[in-house]
Design a protein around this nucleic acid. Structure first.
Lengths: 114, 114
DNA sequence: TGTATATATAAGTGAATAGTTATATAATAA
DNA sequence: TTATTATATAACTATTCACTTATATATACA
């Protein structure tokens, strides 16, 4: 069952992206739920361009996919990616981040509904 | 069987170290065999200080252990590390690097014996 | 001894990177 | 149409990072 071999080059590139606390947490969140940019901005108390730039890097490697809904763009982990099987075991070992989304819901600023 | 929880902070720090092609390949090699600095220098055609510095970073996070044997210092993955279970699934997905050590043996410059 | 070999460390340099501010695009609402 | 909201992108800046050169330490061997 050992599937697609990943090149060292590609693996290092992906791990470099995951080697940032913000991006790693974003990915963990997006593996559980679909999130939009403004939610990340709130969660990480970061600027909107900073979050956008993190998302773009993840999108460039096709680790996440986007879907526009009206004015919002929703991001989630791209489980169809050839490299999903590479990152999934990593994400699974990370502490659950659901509390971050729960906080948003409590504050009444969770968007995801629609 | 989901064991030790790793913090996001720590996970990101480790992944950042793995996000370098040289270090990632070194780790994969050291997960299979014990290697010394001069072997890495030969394999990666890198300078000795460069290799030493990579090893130090891996050692600082206790991902590798060292053992002096005479003039040589042998490095290997520290499977006793609290984070070995975190990196092992990653290393297992990487392409085998045995050919690199075989090359050294063929050239007659493999040290590990003793 | 003194010389050679293996490794580590320190200091400097250039490139990569994450964040900032400013601006552009796109959808919605008035 | 104009204003507002959500997001992306471009240009700039400060920091991080990998590598270099030079030097130090430690072992082996003559």
């Amino acid at each position: 069952m050992l599937q697609t071999t990943i090149s060292m080059e590609k693996a290092a590139g992906i791990l470099k992206l995951l080697g940032d606390k913000t991006r790693l947490t974003m990915l963990k969140l997006m593996d559980e739920q679909t999130c939009c940019v403004c939610e990340f901005v709130e969660i990480f108390q970061s600027s909107q361009p900073s979050i956008s730039q993190h998302l773009r890097k993840l999108k460039d490697l096709e680790l996440v996919k986007e879907e526009r809904k009206g004015q919002w763009i929703f991001y989630s982990v791209n489980s169809k990616s050839a490299y999903y099987s590479f990152i999934k075991p990593i994400l699974d070992q990370l502490p659950d981040q659901d509390d971050k989304l729960k906080e948003l819901e409590e504050k009444g600023i969770r968007i995801s509904c629609c």
